[in-house]
């Protein structure tokens, strides 16, 4: 079993995403929410953080992505879009939730 990590800060402003990737174990699930969703965008200066992370699964919360005008086709390959119900499923499926702010 593994943990679910949520990241709600922009990777351009804080290094939360970088830290989560560093401190989360193999098999971890990492969910981008709020301003954290910018970390799921392809073609940015920080996209490699996610693209190069192995053994972790990445998710992004759809409503937060939509609010910011970021279309699904701009996501980094392999990042899975979830809705609120999907968020709940992730919480249930994992041992615990770690919110990295």
């Amino acid at each position: 079993m593994a943990d679910l990590y949520t990241v709600n800060k922009s990777p351009f402003e804080k290094n939360s995403l970088e830290d989560v990737i560093r401190f989360s174990g193999e098999g971890a699930s990492i969910l981008f929410i709020e301003d954290g969703v910018y970390g799921a965008m392809a073609g940015t200066a920080v996209s490699d953080l996610v693209a190069n992370a192995t053994g972790r699964k990445f998710y992004v919360l759809g409503p937060d992505l939509k609010a910011r005008g970021i279309a699904e086709d701009r996501l980094i390959d392999g990042v899975e879009l979830v809705d609120y119900a999907g968020f709940v499923d992730l919480v249930v499926e994992n041992d615990k939730v770690q919110a990295w702010l």
Binding site: G62, P63, D64, K66, A67, R68, G69, I70, A71, Y84
Partner: peptide
């Protein structure tokens, strides 16, 4: 950035 939709928030 255009295309913002906050209806679910």
């Amino acid at each position: 950035v255009k295309g913002s939709d906050t209806s679910e928030l």
